[in-house]
Design a protein around this nucleic acid. Structure first.
Lengths: 137, 137
DNA sequence: CTTAGTGCAAAACATTTGCAAACCA
DNA sequence: TGGTTTGCAAATGTTTTGCACTAAG
């Protein structure tokens, strides 16, 4: 798992465990810190951030930006083609992941209309623009 | 324009002017401050933020989250149904607004495939979830 | 006049960094 | 043992707030 020259420390295990035990949640760094501390482990906020950065680089976790003032993290789901589709409740802030097989266009519409009242959505496409493509090649 | 009991101050005019003169850009608060100052106006950062908050509330401007460490703002385009679709270049950070009439499904595909190499996208649907709907009514 | 609006400085907040101490391999 | 990793505290960078002063209507 971490044979890539990274050391398997107690703190890294603890952070991964918290993410695994809350795989349905979208935790932020402070919540992760509090849970690890509540389990009796010794850890600091800097280590939490450094561990999350490492796990992100290794693609173990996915970052979720809800633009609510903090960055959120969850375990990556390698089986999902739709990691970046979310339903975000403007009332309670809860975040629902959409299942991939619900997203075939019609089913997606039905799911959205029946179980979640969409009032706004944002689509962001990340990639390389024409100008940068010209400059690179 | 601001007959809603809001006062038309020099600072508010200046911020609006900067946004209008850079309508193709997605400016952050610091850039707006610097431009207003460079024009010889007297203004502080707090006023910039307070003005942007007000303009947002009045729907004069739209907020853009690029998750690059700051919040960006631009003049709202009331004619566009697609205010929340963006092409974000991962190389230069440039943000392109997609024209509404390019977004009919097939044209959208063609545009994306020919002028922008998409490597990642995020879709966020904001609304009210089932649980909150049950609690409200 | 009167009160909303402003500038400044300080506070708030999430995140990052420097460095000596601790620890995994 | 040696180079990573850690905790702490301080630094960072953006955004917000308190308060006395200013200015729009």
């Amino acid at each position: 798992m971490k044979n890539n020259s990274y050391k398997l420390t107690g703190q890294r295990i603890a952070v991964l465990e918290v993410l695994a035990e809350n795989s349905g949640e979208h935790l932020n760094a402070d919540v992760i810190l509090q849970i690890v501390l509540s389990k009796g482990h010794r850890i600091g906020m800097a280590t939490v951030y450094r561990t999350l950065t490492l796990l992100k680089r290794l693609k173990f976790i996915t970052i979720i930006y809800l633009n609510d003032g903090c960055i959120r993290y969850k375990l990556s789901d390698p089986n999902s083609k739709y990691e970046h589709y979310y339903l975000i409740c403007e009332c309670c802030g809860n975040v629902l992941d959409i299942e991939g097989d619900l997203l075939d266009s019609l089913e997606k519409q039905l799911f959205l209309k029946n179980r979640f009242r969409v009032s706004n959505h944002r689509v962001k496409h990340f990639g390389i623009c024409e100008k940068c493509m010209d400059e690179q090649y």
